[in-house]
């Protein structure tokens, strides 16, 4: 794993909101095919880092390179086209659309029908819809969402919405998938299901994963490498085993008295 090429480089990124330093000089690499976990206490800057990568925020300083391209100089709507997808901490689905249409909407960048083709529909746009429907159905099968295919997402419970959001991100066929707390608010069983889906997506679809998660046991189980943030600084980086025994991490994250 250590030898695979670098997919994403975060180079000395700082992010300020006024005088609040959300991130200061954070650097890290994401290697192709790995699962990288970002952990840290609340307000450590984990989501800020993800937002910088997905171009939601513009870093005050530093560069973010994805396959050699500087993301800080790219428009937000072009990020998906480069092969980066993400999910959100507070689920950002299209609540008025069905599960199926949410996934179909994510095929947008892979489809070509323009306005006139869509208005005429029969012919090119129809055939294109059918083609992409097959891709989407594969993901629906994969995530076991057949039963909720035509249910409007607004009517789904939290756990299923999280799964639909993962499905929507996978429908983009990304190279890099950013997951912001994919398991918040889930019970043990749902968490295990989700972990299985994430690992399957990683293995079967070859997606590189960056995930933020608070469940330590889970992070230690599935991550290849872990980055620890605290007050906007990176305080440690290494394999789960190294992180588990790193005194600074124990001090900052788990608390001095804990272990």
């Amino acid at each position: 794993m250590g030898n695979s090429p670098v997919l994403l480089t975060v180079d000395q990124v700082s992010l300020n909101f006024g005088r609040v330093q959300a991130l200061s000089h954070v650097s890290c690499d994401v290697r192709e095919g790995e699962i990288l976990a970002i952990i840290g206490p609340n307000g450590a800057g984990k989501t800020s880092l993800l937002n910088c990568i997905s171009n939601f925020y513009k870093p005050t300083k530093g560069r973010i390179l994805f396959e050699g391209r500087d993301l800080t100089k790219t428009k937000p709507s072009q990020i998906a086209g480069l092969g980066i997808a993400r999910t959100f901490q507070n689920i950002a689905l299209y609540t008025g659309l069905s599960t199926l249409d949410n996934l179909m909407a994510a095929r947008h960048i892979h489809m070509k029908s323009g306005m006139l083709a869509c208005l005429a529909y029969w012919g090119f746009a129809h055939r294109e819809d059918l083609r992409h429907r097959e891709v989407v159905e594969e993901i629906i099968d994969f995530l076991e969402m057949e039963a909720i295919r035509k249910t409007v997402v607004g009517a789904l419970p939290h756990g299923l919405r999280k799964r639909v959001e993962l499905g929507r991100a996978l429908a983009l066929e990304p190279k890099l998938l950013l997951l912001d707390e994919p398991m918040t608010g889930m019970n043990q069983e749902e968490k295990e299901d989700m972990a299985r889906f994430i690992l399957d997506a990683h293995e079967l679809r070859g997606v590189t994963l960056v995930l933020i998660e608070h469940d330590m046991g889970l992070v230690m189980d599935i991550a290849d490498r872990v980055i620890v943030l605290d007050f906007g600084r990176k305080i440690a980086e290494g394999t789960p085993e190294e992180i588990r025994t790193n005194p600074e991490v124990i001090n900052a994250y788990l608390g001095q008295e804990h272990i």
């Binding site: 959100f88 909407a105 947008h108």
Partner: peptide, 8 residues
């Protein structure tokens, strides 16, 4: 916002 990140 999500639409934008999905390339729309």
């Amino acid at each position: 916002l999500a639409a934008e990140l999905l390339g729309i």
